[in-house]
């Protein structure tokens, strides 16, 4: 997924080969991760796609099924991965992920500790941020989930950057050998306050901390506990509003005495063949944008803090 290995770097000359992980893009909310395997096929509502047809094509290609339907084959990125991964738990999405990495000041070379691993959505982006020389140590108390996460990181080519361990961080804290070693700690736990003393111990001076909690009561207790060892405690909520764009024709109210038709924007939508159903009245065409009608209303609260500096 990352360009750590020159062979994996995106390029005009990089062609899809047997064993590559590709993201099969149908439309923006319908994608699938597929590992290319000579002799294998992908079947979806557009028909049957032979993997052998994909091999040798550049990433970003449009490929066709036996029925003539098509999909695009994209190179995986952490953002695309977040949209296709198996949900073993509730996951973090792009807005929270991006903000967490920026606010934790994660840069190449950093050592980051995370608990729990969950479905590995954030972990994937953390790995990208610490590459090539840093490391993400992620802990989950669920053995099977840790194993699946490990398999995912293997598949996405991140296993050299991520170590998954089975451990109950709330109960046991982070392992002692990380004392003073971590640049950042991220917690997504039901009772994060239980792990805070341990987080303070593993963080370097001025190290950064973040806890993600869906409920304000969790935030309340987290902040109270943080005040002992941490400073610069701030809580945020981040959401993403998306927009839809379309070209619409609006009737002019001025000309041709068509005023009686009213001057409201035409409700007529673009037809499947691209043309518009319109009367004979003069109209003005323009590209317009509006927020999408539905959106995620809440993901969680992000509480950040910094270890008090003992100089």
């Amino acid at each position: 997924m990352l360009a750590c290995h020159p062979a994996k770097m995106l390029s005009f000359n990089r062609l899809i080969s047997d064993g590559d992980l590709v993201i099969v893009y149908e439309k923006h909310d319908s994608m699938k991760a597929v590992t290319v395997c000579e002799g294998s096929v992908l079947q979806n509502r557009f028909g049957v796609f032979k993997h052998s047809d994909w091999i040798g094509k550049p990433f970003g290609s449009k490929v066709f099924s036996s029925k003539g339907g098509f999909v695009h084959l994209l190179a995986p990125t952490p953002e695309l991965w977040t949209m296709v991964l198996n949900h073993r738990t509730q996951i973090l999405y792009i807005a929270d992920i991006s903000f967490v990495i920026m606010y934790l000041e994660v840069v190449p070379g950093c050592v980051v500790l995370e608990s729990g691993t969950g479905s590995g959505s954030l972990t994937t982006s953390l790995a990208r941020a610490v590459a090539p020389s840093g490391h993400v140590n992620t802990f989950d108390f669920h053995e099977q989930r840790a194993e699946s996460a490990r398999a995912d990181f293997e598949r996405t080519g991140l296993s050299s950057l991520v170590t998954v361990k089975v451990r109950d961080i709330q109960g046991e804290g982070f392992p002692d050998d990380f004392s003073g070693m971590a640049d950042s700690v991220f917690l997504d736990l039901p009772q994060p306050w239980l792990a805070i003393p341990s987080a303070a111990k593993v963080l370097r001076n001025d190290g950064t901390f973040c806890s993600f909690s869906p409920c304000i009561e969790q935030v309340q207790r987290t902040c109270e506990t943080l005040r002992t060892h941490f400073t610069d405690i701030r809580t945020f909520e981040i959401l993403l509003r998306t927009y839809e764009v379309r070209q619409e024709k609006m009737q002019s109210s001025r000309e041709d005495g068509n005023d009686s038709n009213g001057s409201l924007p035409s409700k007529r939508r673009q037809c499947s063949d691209g043309s518009y159903v319109l009367g004979s009245c003069p109209s003005i065409s323009s590209v317009m944008a509006r927020p999408c009608g539905e959106a995620r209303g809440h993901t969680g609260y992000l509480t950040f803090a910094r270890v008090k500096c003992v100089s």
């Binding site: 893009y25 695009h72 994209l74 945020f236 993403l240 998306t242 927009y243 590209v287 317009m288 944008a289």
Partner: peptide
């Protein structure tokens, strides 16, 4: 950006096009 997105769609130059706007709120806890 709306114009740009529309044209990119017409020219079939890109996919996964999306316009987004983050909304960030801080809390006193």
């Amino acid at each position: 950006l709306a114009t740009c997105m529309h044209n990119l769609q017409l020219e079939k130059m890109a996919i996964g096009l999306q316009i987004s706007e983050p909304w960030l709120r801080e809390y006193q806890v």
